[in-house]
Design a protein around this nucleic acid. Structure first.
Lengths: 231, 231
DNA sequence: CTCATGCAAGAGCAGTGCTCTCGTTTCAGG
DNA sequence: CCTGAAACGAGAGCACTGCTCTTGCATGAG
């Protein structure tokens, strides 16, 4: 049963949540590298070994935070998409990009956890895959809507490399033309290039008005996948 | 004097180089987070405290590696630019992007060091600025050449956000039109979005032929800054 | 030749992730 | 209701980390 079976089970979920909350606080304050199991336990009034009853290792605690971060940025993107339902696809695209950026700027350490360097020997377990895909799926959804409504026009590609030659996993969006899927994957990664450079400080003393810059770049990204500027 | 003043000075530069070499080996093997001063010293047959004669702290050793990494990827980009001198700007652009990607794929941990999450409380000192700018300057140079030769055409921007409204530090490329500078900065960061997603594994089980995909995306990036497909 | 300086070694401090043991508390099956 | 298994918190301990300080030795400049 997944229902609460008693005081013990209730305490377990509460303590697990408290550990994650305190870990997230330390993460936001100092970054992932300085997240210390002992410090978390100390702050919670426990002893470090007691924490291993809830998370088998430090990496497992990090994994939980990673999943939460993916879910948070995914929820931000989905929220922006639903709030702009019915508007022009290019405006929706831009709104979603801006929501991702806003979340990243507000939670730089959590952003770094999921879109920065992978932690040392750590390989992401399978259960991070679904949360990690949420932002991408939102973008695909907007493009699909535009495509079905004929509100999309991929610019001609005078390119020796036909996009059909780029093999993308088919089950991602089998209903969309390959050229659009390729453009979407590229735009998706390029979006996080823009966000990462801002969050990681590469725009320091280079881009003054980062909000305006990002909005402009995100809009052009939407045009790159064929979203039309006028509905 | 910068010349060698004696056996002592010679030994100093040799040992400094040996430390950096061993540190780079460990960096490539395990990643930045697992780089241990004691392990480096152990491997070199010294005791850990002796290492502090050469690097005041672990972060200073990391800084040295960061500068080296920026220089390495910058040199790769510059090499690709000089090797393709005289060819069409769009081809040169693509070649430079491919050189950056190739270096990143070959040195993932060093790439993560400079384009991944910033390390914990660490703020990059001033002497990393110049090496960090090299790749961007190569891209600017190619765009400038195309612009001077009239081989550039920024597509019309039916965009409510005029690029002139995006303030970019003026002394970056004062001779180029603002719209081009904005497009260049965006393309620069988007290039590293493509590379980071590949190196950090976000394309896992998604993009099959990553070399073809990257070349295609890099070429479109070049077109985004106005480089013409036909010379 | 002398002596300040550069240097390696070692001990030591405070901190880390993690394991193991040892009493105690809780909860479920008989 | 009772009992035994499971879950739990506390503590000691291991091997490791970055870093500091002191001690003695070798180098090389004056």
């Amino acid at each position: 049963m997944t229902t609460v079976r008693g005081a013990r089970a209730r305490a377990r979920v509460e303590i697990t949540a408290a550990i994650k909350a305190e870990a997230r606080t330390q993460l936001a304050a100092e970054g992932a590298a300085k997240l210390s199991l002992r410090a978390v336990a100390r702050e919670l009034g426990m002893v470090s070994s007691a924490l291993y009853r809830y998370f088998p290792s430090r990496d497992d605690l990090l994994t939980a935070l990673i999943v939460d971060a993916y879910d948070a940025v995914g929820a931000a993107a989905e929220g922006a998409a639903t709030e702009t339902a019915g508007r022009r696809p290019l405006d929706r695209w831009t709104a979603v990009c801006r929501a991702v950026r806003a979340w990243a700027v507000e939670h730089p350490h959590e952003y770094a956890l999921i879109y920065g360097s992978p932690v040392p020997g750590y390989t992401a377990p399978q259960d991070t895959n679904a949360p990690a895909a949420r932002v991408g799926l939102v973008l695909v959804g907007i493009a699909r809507e535009a495509h079905e409504g004929e509100g999309i026009a991929l610019p001609p590609l005078p390119d020796p490399l036909r996009p059909e030659a780029v093999r993308i996993t088919a089950d991602m969006a089998p209903d969309l033309p390959p050229a659009l899927v390729v453009a979407l994957v590229a735009a998706w990664s390029q979006l996080f290039g823009l966000v990462s450079f801002e969050v990681f400080g590469q725009f320091h003393r280079l881009v003054e008005d980062r909000d305006v810059f990002f909005t402009h770049a995100a809009r052009r990204l939407g045009q790159d996948v064929g979203l039309l500027p006028r509905g």
